[in-house]
Amino acid sequence: MSSRLLFQRVRKELGRDARVVIATAMPPAVEGRPDDYRLAPSRLIEDDQLEIHAVGGAQACDDPMAFLDGTQRIEVVGYVEATPVVAALVAAAVRLRVGGHFTTVARQQRAVLVGRPDVLESLAGTYTGFDPVPLPAEDVLHPLKSLEGAHRLIDIERSRLERDVGWVFRQTSDAWLVVDGVLADSGVWQDDARAIGVSKSHATLPFGGADLERYLTLPSGHRTSVFEPATWRIAPVRSWGLRLWPHEGHDLFHGLVRVEVAVPAATTAHADLVSRWLLAERAPLSRPDVRWDRLLYGVAAVERHLRAR
């Protein structure tokens, strides 16, 4: 069943309860995920100071390469006593590219209903197909705070699904795996020499001061020195910035990604090789997605697959 029909059904089911005020839209103030913008200075691994390295021309990876990404669709389906009830469909998949063609090799999906614990309890039995996820007590006082909390829970749920499908994929394949996002938040990839994290987000920047300026003015086709981000939670990783497209005339963040690999794989040669692979992944262009300058086509293909179902 498509997500649209799934949400329609749960609204219909909840609507049978007289206490539920059916809703169909998200309050604009909380659209999207709240990002925590900050600087988190990193430890340089490769050079004594932050250097800029030319990585060479784009070079396609001849081996099979997989891409992992997840999606989430969130809708407010109703309110009970001024508290939102949020439905979400989260999904994650791995698509393996062999000979240029993609095949979906792992996929998971979960529908969750997020709300005040007592509300979810009282609605039990009125809806089907959704797993209840209660909001923490601190998020239930203000409706918008509740929505923000719901977002956070759903993000966590999506990350969990991504880890799960990655793990499932790795049980059967040792192909290169490009993960959309960071590796450092997951315990799955800490020793995986064939996992490559590509982060499009710059909410947390790895340097400050002159190094930050250097980092953000990285020329196209160049990478920074390898460093260890300060933001790892589960296990340390190695990382570097890579400019996929010239930023001149656009924006400092245009075409800038941060690459992560596991510690055992972090050699200079490997950083250059992976960078050249990623430069090759600029084509085909992932337009019309607005993030086309940082969104690799393989990752976009996973997203498109998940959104189409």
Binding site: A280, E281, R282, A283, P284, L285, R287, Y297, A301
Partner: peptide
């Protein structure tokens, strides 16, 4: 996406 070069462009994904 191909930098204007339809011949030499590297395009690993179809």
């Amino acid at each position: 996406g191909s930098d204007g070069d339809p011949v030499g462009a590297v395009e690993p994904s179809h």
